[in-house]
């Protein structure tokens, strides 16, 4: 069953003015099973415009978005309900915090759904735990938190709605390596425990290689590739042409292959490469 589907999605900014720009053109894809999907693309490739279509923040100039096989802009669908099903965490989400306490801010989404107080409270605690926010932080003002904590509080605000489809626009931008790892881990956990579809927009090819099952590649407003992470990254030359790259470790692996090393396909992370190289060295040692 199709969970999320885009059909012929096209959006034009500033139609009828001198500033007319086609942001995305004829984007088609279908996501049928839960998993972690990465969206990569050069700045200005239309990633942000694309994701805003998926929960109805932007109405497409032409084309259709289906969530659970229902057209989100059809008359019988309420766009607000779609937004509870498809949650978006925008870039630098910490700038949208507004409540007196972190607890109240996380509760904003669940309260809008119309849940009762007990359920809201339960969800706030659950979401806070997911992103490693301690109880004492919950009663502080969001403006007293550190950068990384603010970011996690903002993400918790979306997680608390328990969306079936969770979209995150560069959730780790501008964070230190530790903050980045905490957030990536929370996202992966959420995906697995909720059996959700997670779309992760990222510029870090290392992160994508580490966590993504499949990758969507956007370029010039068009969807250029959509496939398993290893497949997409095996098309190194094409990605380079789009101003993208593959993880450093994959570059090393392909350089080793060129020099005659017999390494298997599908090496995405440092851990994979380490295993494969050690095996190669061991085998080589036995043969010699």
């Amino acid at each position: 069953m199709s969970i999320l589907k885009a059909q012929g999605l096209t959006y034009v900014y500033g139609e009828g003015t001198p500033f007319r720009i086609a942001a995305i053109t004829d984007v088609n894809f279908e996501i049928n099973e839960p998993g972690l999907y990465a969206v990569i693309g050069h700045t200005g490739s239309g990633k942000s415009t694309l994701i805003q279509h998926l929960n109805g923040l932007i109405k497409p100039t032409s084309g259709t978005v289906f969530v659970d096989e229902k057209d989100i802009w059809s008359k019988n669908e309420k766009i607000r309900d779609v937004r509870f099903k498809v949650g978006i965490v925008f870039q630098y989400p910490e700038y949208q915090l507004f409540e007196e306490t972190v607890r109240k801010d996380i509760a904003f989404g669940p309260r809008n759904i119309g849940l009762d107080e007990a359920e809201i409270n339960e969800r706030v605690m659950w979401a806070a735990k997911k992103v490693n926010l301690t109880d004492e932080l919950l009663d502080k003002s969001p403006f007293e938190l550190s950068g990384g904590e603010k970011r996690r509080a903002a993400i918790a605000g979306v997680l608390a709605m328990r969306p079936r489809v969770l979209i995150l626009d560069e959730p780790t931008a501008g964070l230190d390596p530790k903050g980045r790892d905490v957030i990536l881990k929370s996202i992966c956990d959420y995906q697995k425990q909720e059996n959700a579809v997670v779309l992760l927009v990222s510029h870090s090819m290392e992160d994508v290689a580490r966590v993504a099952d499949k990758v969507l590649v956007m370029n010039g407003g068009k969807l250029q590739m959509f496939g398993k992470t290893a497949e997409v990254f095996s098309r190194h030359a094409e990605l380079c042409e789009m101003g993208l790259n593959i993880p450093k470790v994959m570059q090393i692996v392909s350089a080793l292959r060129e020099r005659g090393a017999d390494l298997p396909d599908g090496i995405l992370t440092v851990a994979d490469a380490e295993k494969a190289i050690l095996r190669l060295v061991k085998d080589g040692g036995e043969n010699a």
């Binding site: 607000r80 937004r83 904003f108 605000g157």
Partner: peptide, 13 residues
Amino acid sequence: DKIMSAQKARGAE
């Protein structure tokens, strides 16, 4: 515009 989108994504009316 950005903040409005973000709050709308959390169901603000």
